[in-house]
Design a protein around this nucleic acid. Structure first.
Lengths: 188, 188
DNA sequence: GTCTATACTTTGATAGAC
DNA sequence: GTCTATCAAAGTATAGAC
């Protein structure tokens, strides 16, 4: 793995856990076992360029993970349930550190850093589109599929906030169950 | 209004918009038009004490707002819908700055500041309890009411993240509609 | 109780030797 | 390309005059 890739991997994890303003470039360089001058060699745009690259990396990875869980399930409803249960497992295994990899940064930059807001916005929109397409493939009409896709992502994001804060899997499990109940009511 | 109250009001808004690490005590003192020495006179515990007082203040205020919207509606379903529409209005009027007043701080401190994590956790748990009680009063049995209360709060929190990031009311409206659909399916 | 001045640390970023 | 040294600014926190 190249030095540049190591920077991105380390930065993705640290920004995910501490947010944009909560971690410094020196600590990132330190964790990547490289001097800070090397960081600026690969990312001349400084912190914002590193953040943009890191969250795009995280966003792509998380999309792959969610889609593999959804695609490995026999139907839409159990796929949704599996997503929330998998998320709860990962969260507990990481001592309630690893929820959504871009959520803290998204909230921090939403009103303070327009270029980075656009990057996070594109990631969320991609997730919504893919979730809606998945629901549409499983029989929901386009309009209903988009509403459901949005509710899936907002439910997941909100459940991560509460689960990390309360150090409990309950918000994830309950939100997943509620989404499945709504699906079942609609398809029967 | 006392100097202390002015500190809390200003801090609540700035922490809400910029998060814990995104705003400094000097800027808070500056916005409150008071010197920083005065801030430490009222909050000898420093930044963490000010944050704790601020988000408790915000948490109480937001609970009052949500409960007044819920109680002024003729039934549970329209109360929920009103909450999401009211939230969307406030968000647009503030140029997508004012969503949940404690969410950014909650994510930032979840893995890095245990005393403050407990404060945010207590606030969310109070909100869930009150939402569940409201749903129970409107006919849902205790277990279903708790699941619904959690889904309501997680949906609201997640919708705030996406709405602020995408600068669009759609996540709030869609999540609200989805919750109402699920309610209607359950009560008919 | 109010305010000024400042100590000390860490931040993002840059210059320049090798 | 890699690394060291350093800058200016901002961070939290404190001391002490009034």
């Amino acid at each position: 793995m190249s030095t540049r890739d190591r920077f991105i991997g380390v930065a993705a994890q640290l920004f995910s856990r501490h947010g944009y303003a909560g971690i410094g470039l020196k600590q990132i360089a330190n964790s990547a076992e490289a001097p800070i001058g090397s960081l600026y060699h690969y990312f001349p745009g400084g912190k914002d360029e590193l953040v943009a690259e890191s969250i795009r990396h995280s966003g792509d990875g998380y999309l792959l993970l969610v889609e593999s869980v959804l695609d490995n399930a026999p139907d839409l409803e159990s796929g949704i349930r599996d997503c929330f249960h998998t998320a709860a497992e990962h969260l507990e295994l990481s001592d309630y550190q690893d929820g959504c990899p871009i959520e803290t940064v998204a909230l921090e930059v939403a009103s303070t850093n327009e270029p980075l807001r656009q990057v996070t916005s594109e990631i969320f929109e991609t997730w919504i589109d893919r979730a809606a397409e998945h629901a549409h493939r499983h029989g929901l009409d386009s309009s209903t599929a988009r509403t459901f896709g949005i509710a899936f992502i907002t439910g997941l994001e909100g459940a991560f906030v509460l689960a990390r804060t309360m150090r409990s899997p309950e918000p994830l499990i309950a939100t997943g169950e509620h989404l499945c109940d709504a699906l079942q009511a609609r398809t029967t």
